[in-house]
Every structure is written in structure tokens, then in C-alpha cells.
Amino acid sequence: MTRYLSLFGQYALQYAKVRLEYRWDFFISVLTMTLATVFGLAVVFLMFGRLHDLNGWRFDELLFLYGFSLLPMSLFNVFSVNLYQFSDIYLIQGKFDRVLLRPVHSLFQILFEQLRIEALGDAVLGLFILSATGPKLGIHANPLNVFFLCAAILLGALLYTAIFTILCTVSFWFEDKVGVMPPFYNLIAFGRYPLDIYNGFIRVVLSWIVPFGFATFYPPAAVLRPSIYGHFVWLLPVVTAGFSAAALWLWNRGVRNYSSTGS
């Protein structure tokens, strides 16, 4: 475990060096990140500004939900680059050979070999929204809330990782450049709004089939409406553990099916 932690540190260090080597690329992405954050905030105000009440959720509450939903996602996106390009670069171009030759679990290498620090821009936006709307809703940054927030972010990011890893493993059996991830990625947007505005089908999908709801809606909803959503929050670790175990199992099965490239 400590070995993996120190290896992660090494990867991060290398990543930083590469990014600094391509200086302009780095400056440009910092600029893009800042702009994206500003535009993101503008969109939120334009969109939610017109909604004063959505199925009983007030404007500040909607903002609060939206703000939280950005956090696990942005943490996940720091590590998600390789999952998105896994099929193309690793399976079809055969780069997975190199990964398998190293005495470190292959999924660990895929997740941590390439980082995308710009993704944290959304987290800045999310935290800003939370700190702006929280106090108005009577939610303050006391130690308990901060602990709860951190746990929900970590577990949410882990849940995203598990779900997308599962989607990724499909490529081990069905050779395809893009993979099946894009439509699911779009599904996440649904989770940014209160789940009770949707019909039963979408609610079931987002809670139990592709449970993005646990990474987006349920944790902040549990804080805002404890009597209704409080108990869902205890399911977050359970669902995350279940999906992570499934992801690891499927991944290891998939590797058995890896056929490399010619020569």
C-alpha cells in the first residue's frame, strides 16, 4: 500500500515535469481552465437564475446540489484521461503490453500514469458555489460537515472510477476505438438536478443501475433534506464498495482476453 502511494507520488512528479516541459501547453491549459470555470459559473447563474422553485427545491438549494456535483466529478477527471482513451491507445495500439510487464497492478498504472490537473478547475467552481450558498441554507463549514464533504467527494470519485472502469472493460471483448463510455458520461448531467424531478425509470437507473446519483445528488440532498435522503448516504460506501469490487473483477477477467497486437 505504501509502495503504491509512493509510486503515485513518482508518477505525479513525472507528470509535473512533462507538463512543465511543454510550457506553452501548460500555460494554455491553465488559461482554458480558468475561462472554463468562469463560463461555468455564468451558465449556472443564467440557468438557475430563472428557476425560483423546482419541485420544491429553492434556487439556493439547486445551486448547492449543482456545486457539490462538480466535486467528485472533477477529482475523478484528474485520473480519467487514460480510461477514456484506453481502448484506442492501450488495446488497439498495443501499449497495454508495456503496462502488463511491470510488477504493479495494470489498473493502477492506467489510472495514474496520465493525469489532468486542469480538471480541478471545476472543483474550484464547486467549492465556491458551496461556500456561497451553504451559509444561506444554514450549512456551515464545521469539522463534521467538512469531514462529511471530503468523504462524499472521495467515495463519489471512487464510484465514478468504478463505473467507468466497468464500461472500459467492455473493450476487452469488443474491439472498438471509442468504447461505450460517451453516452454514459452524458448521463451524469441528469444527476446534477434533484432526482425527484424525474420519472421512476430514470430515478431507478441513476440510483441502482448506473448509480451516478450517489456521487452527485444523494450526499448534498442528505444534508438539505435529512428526513428524506439521510439514509441514502449510508448506502454510498456500500454501493461504491460493490461497484469497485465488480470493476476489479471484470478488469482482471478482461486482461485474460487481451490479445495484444501483431509482432
Partner: peptide, 24 residues
Amino acid sequence: FGQRTQLWWDIAVVESFRLLKNIY
């Protein structure tokens, strides 16, 4: 593999060696 390098493409050779030192 003669056809394909095992090293990290973008970083200096010595950095690749240092990473390998840690991995192994």
C-alpha cells in the same frame, strides 16, 4: 521489444530509469 520502447516517451531517459528503480 525492438519495435516498441518500454520507456516513457516524453520524459528524459534518466527519469524513466528513476521510475523503474522505484517500480522494481
